[in-house]
Design a binder for these strands. Sequence first.
DNA 1: CCGGATCCGGTTAGATACTG
DNA 2: CAGTATCTAACCGGATCCGG
Lengths: 232, 232
Amino acid sequence: MTNASYGQFCPVAMAAEVLCTRWTMVLLRELVAGSTRFNELRRGVPRMSPALLSKRLRELEQAGVVERAPAPGAPDTVAYRLTPAGRDVLPVVEAIGMWGQKWVETEPSLENLDVELLMWDMRRNLNTDPVPAVQTVIEFVYPDLPRSQSRWWLIVEPDRTVDLCHVDPGFDVDLYATVDLRTMTEIWMGLRSVANAVDRDVLVLVGPQAMIDTMQSWLGLSPFAAQKKLAS
Amino acid sequence: MTNASYGQFCPVAMAAEVLCTRWTMVLLRELVAGSTRFNELRRGVPRMSPALLSKRLRELEQAGVVERAPAPGAPDTVAYRLTPAGRDVLPVVEAIGMWGQKWVETEPSLENLDVELLMWDMRRNLNTDPVPAVQTVIEFVYPDLPRSQSRWWLIVEPDRTVDLCHVDPGFDVDLYATVDLRTMTEIWMGLRSVANAVDRDVLVLVGPQAMIDTMQSWLGLSPFAAQKKLAS
DNA sequence: CCGGATCCGGTTAGATACTG
DNA sequence: CAGTATCTAACCGGATCCGG
């Protein structure tokens, strides 16, 4: 209907009609990662226009990949959730991510840094297991960014949920990390280790030695890290 | 350059910029399957315009996924081959194909039948192991198609190479298969078994009983069959 | 035949603003 | 919060043509 189809009965072509339109795979990554609200999805794909996002969500709904439902707790708003078919795109997203991590030249895309996207992803992928079971606050300071974007707080609650603030929440800070955006992005992508960044003084950590020593593990990294090199 | 990028450093987004533009995944399927020549690729994606095919091949070359080289035996023409990065898209193509086989409604796409595409894929995916090591000729007759498209010959040479003809090659035929295009497509996609089609008289096989009995295995099916149902 | 290039009309996507 | 509306730029499909 909206898309002219590839006109093939091959499963690859049939799936590509649904999954390989512009922005769709990136949107699916957001859904797989657990975002459900329209504006939550928008934060994950900030350069996608809301009109196109709305259109893609409707197409995915039509294809049986997502379903719209009233949001729990706010029945007058909408939550988008993956159907069983949608949850089954996880292997596809993983395969694509693995390929990208292994084979795409990172230099050009390291020009497109976005601190909000980075912090948002860190919030989502933080590995809370090694973090003590009391409220823990980590402040990130990016001296190279304008003041309005230079300070971020990750708050791990005792129940292991993670909050992200970009205004001072007023809690005591357990660990300070001062770093430039590019370095932090490289670490998060698995292109560089915490230890290496500390050694070269591009990442400065202030806090309990135990947290510093385990940072590499609780950072969690992107699900695609460990795929390539650690350019050490 | 040609595509506005997603502007994200996430591996999924970076890979999707390269792999998830229109027609690209279907083209990669052809390359993974072993096609190398421009017009050979065109036969695999008959509804893709040659201009766009040319453009995509250049983009994939630029991305390090394919490489152009003089064709062996015809040095004034071109062969497109996958690089190591290109061969590594196989898991992606497989994941997408598996998802399509499992989750895409087949009814609409069964409207887009194409006998040439089907026979071309059969030629490529025929499992020659169970076929005797002498020249073996199988004739497919599609009574529902116009005369110019109704008869096809698959020739398995003693060295296990497979040729496809749509004009009578004049060889003795070992096995005749009379079938309608939709049924044969369903069988090839794994949506229906040979035995079921024979039972319902929509597939008529004439030839040695041994070949008939093993047809389900030497047909080979698409690499994605066996993923779902056999709607029996 | 092979390997494209060129032109043109229709569709899709991006940017920005706005609304219930 | 959850989208529309509108306008413009980019892309795509289809046909045709061209040099070896």
